[in-house]
Design a binder for these strands. Structure first.
Lengths: 181, 181, 181, 181
DNA sequence: TATGAATGAGTTTTCATTCAT
DNA sequence: TATGAATGAAAACTCATTCAT
């Protein structure tokens, strides 16, 4: 899985052959197929790993006993840090999801939606409480933020000038500022 | 090109075979290769089309004789509308750019950077003039906004509740609100 | 024809496409096919050119009014010089003859045999006259010499240490020495 | 390999498609590519087989404990017999070597040179010892002889009048006679 | 006399997956 | 639990030649 992750991130899912994965990881083709039903399964596992991680963290942050602004800010920043910390997984996620078989794709989308909705609930809560502006529909606000998270894989470089937490703080800050009433 | 655009958007670049393109468009393989040197060229042409269009529009909006807030807002909204109006091109762009041959990819990236820089200059101008907050580096602001633009191809549906211009107004609004000092 | 000759010599007949020939020579495909019926025809023309040249020169040398040792020596040396002077043609001849269409190949072989026989006649004449050894059948003697001529294209380099005439003298000398009774 | 050898000899390397090889040998394309990395590899293997065989035999003959005339004569005759015995391999060698990929071609050429040099050393030894004429440079002598060996594939027919050993004796004889001081 | 777009069969190679061992 | 040889369909691309203009 580690090898597959690296290769998928480097050259893309379709551009990585099973042959290359087994060669790079020193196992045989038979062994790989003994543990994974298909190349698709490998991809699916990678998704599952990231999805579970992020869902879990979001649940923690969103359910904390703190004011909603703070909970949203922390959740918004955390997803940035987590994404950067798992940049390969994230890159594969954002670039190769549509290469998954339809039924698995549907499943991932469903889990993704749950994640989106938990996040949206936070925004709506703040809007109801009057601490966030209602100028923009909550759905759009969430897509706005996640757009910037997905975009990280296109520009963030570990050796760049900004540490993950700095980027996270800036992006969360932008979100919160945009939501000021 | 129209057929290729549609198919690339539908199933992805790697998943679309030249055979499928020629069958769907009613030309022969030989004819296609008479006009395009490679499958890659086809992709490159699609990129060129979108890049030229967006660069041109940005230049117009950014160079207008208006206050910087207004110029940024209009540019930010326009790229949203243009992206939605060319959703297939945009989807191909954001999903398949890394499948382009290295040298062509570099070329696209260079043009893309020019675009990014023109946009950033607007933000910096507003920051210098004191109309935009300097809390966030301009670069990050631009990536924040373009994140949401790229993300459009993942969620925007022409038959959804929001018209392109509405989405554009909302997203530009979020940007401008985030930049309030 | 000049371009085709160069390209065929450089990369071989099968490896040279008609497209490359027309591009390198600045004519169009239509024009080429206006003057040559097929790619094969081009090759055949190149052969004809060399065959006619060599046959003509052999006839001159073999028919001269001189002792047979001298006529053979001069003919043997001349074919070496002529081959070196037309190294591209010769290379194509020796390497690509079997890529010619069967009927044309037969025709070339027939002309080649005539050439071989004229040369053999010289050897036989000398053997009858007692100036050449009869230890080796004349046919084999001719093949021995032409082997070394064909081989020139594999090792002779115009910028090497030996001038064409020097090589020719050495090879003719070897032949004549081998034929000493 | 046997099928490929036959087909390459019959119609040339470029004229033989992988499809034809697998059909004629009753294996699948996938199986062929499981064992050979490319069509080129197949050719390279054929070369290697012949090169190893001839180098080994030359080493044996040249290193024998006999007078140099005898060692040269036997080596010269043996390469003829070996070439005739492996006429398909030899034909492919002499006709298709330049169709090999550049790096592999270089490798073959290097091994070929080693062979040439061992042979030349014999000639030089005889020249130093005064048993061979020094009229012709040893290099040229070697090329003279190998020309006739290469040429065998152009004229020798197993059903012709001369047995391999007879041809070998005649050609070795011609060489030795040419070298008489 | 010349153009160059178009053809369609052909090329080599790759690939995910299977299965006897 | 693991091997690795084998499959067969599909991939991108090439090519000599034709033909309407």
């Amino acid at each position: 899985m580690a090898t597959a992750t690296r290769l998928f991130a480097e050259r893309g899912y379709d551009r990585t052959s099973v042959q290359e994965i087994v060669e790079a990881s020193g196992v045989t083709k038979g062994a790989l197929y003994h543990y994974f039903g298909s190349k698709d399964d490998l991809l699916h596992e990678i998704y599952g790993r990231l999805l579970r991680l992020q869902q879990e963290r979001l649940d923690t942050f969103a359910g904390a006993d703190e004011p909603v602004e703070r909970r949203l800010r922390e959740a918004a920043a955390d997803v940035v840090v987590t994404t950067i910390d798992n940049l390969d997984d994230a890159m594969i996620f954002f670039r190769s999801m549509h290469q998954l078989a339809p039924e698995k794709q549907q499943q991932v989308r469903t889990e993704r939606r749950r994640y989106h909705e938990r996040f949206r609930a936070l925004v709506e809560e703040g809007q109801r409480d009057g601490v966030f502006s209602t100028a923009t529909p909550a759905d759009l606000v969430v897509d706005y933020h996640f757009g910037s998270v997905h975009h990280l894989v296109s520009w963030y470089r570990p050796d760049g000038p900004l540490a993950p937490q700095e980027v996270a703080d800036h992006l969360a800050d932008l979100l919160l500022r945009a939501l000021r009433p």
